[in-house]
Amino acid sequence: MLSIENVSKRFGAAAVLNGASMRVGHSESVGLVGKNGSGKSTLLRIVSRILFCDGGSIDWDGQSLLGSDVTLRRSLLYLGHEPGFYPALSASENLHYLADLYGVERSSALIAEKLEEVGLDSFRKGPIRNYSRGMLQRLLLAKALMLQWSLLLMDEPTTGLDSDGMELLSALIASWRKEGRSLLIISHDNAWISAHVDRMYVLEEGKIKSREGGMSAPHHSDLVTAV
């Protein structure tokens, strides 16, 4: 289980997160919504250890994710709002590098298969600098298909996707949920995210104010305002 307790983060004078707490259980799909600049992406980047927090704790199955033990990060995968790949390299080269970083199989056949699954097999050789936003989003999905993770952190996964891409994303999320994997998703598309999560949190003024489902449910108006 992912447990985020009292996480705070300041950028200069601005307190972006101010005691944010939330949980994502095993086999659970959780949404996080909030206004622009409310700190949703910051929180995901802190969980992924791209950013450091100023205070609080983040645990995965009882072990701190903020420590220096890097092996724990194999369980988590971050798909950011930005592509997070090297634009000068091809899709295959980026995925080769990714596989090396995580120490998983990196055969060209496997990479070609994953790229085919996301509809990028015919574009795998050129630099991804020339990719459209939707193609980069598909490449992020290939990243998720390449690795064995237990918790997937997705920041605006629908950005730039066409209708086929949206269908692919929905199908993949459904299959991951079926496999019992945990998901934490940020999206501005309230209707879309509602269809893909078990419950939702709202991040407002640096705090996670309300929850839906088993815990305290947010008011519908809160969600609408936040989104």
């Binding site: 980047r45 992924s48 250890r49 791209i50 220096s68 890097v70 092996t71 724990l72 990060r73 194999r74 988590l76 995968l77 971050y78 950011g80 930005e82 592509p83 997070g84 790949f85 090297y86 634009p87 000068a88 980026n94 590098y97 990714l98 970083l101 995580y102 120490g103 991804i128 980069l136």
Partner: peptide
């Protein structure tokens, strides 16, 4: 600066790399 383009550094920073 090559790491900043496309936020590529996040790929390495979020990976299990010391």
């Amino acid at each position: 600066s090559l790491e900043k383009e496309f936020d590529a550094f996040s790929l390495t920073l979020s990976a299990p790399v010391d």
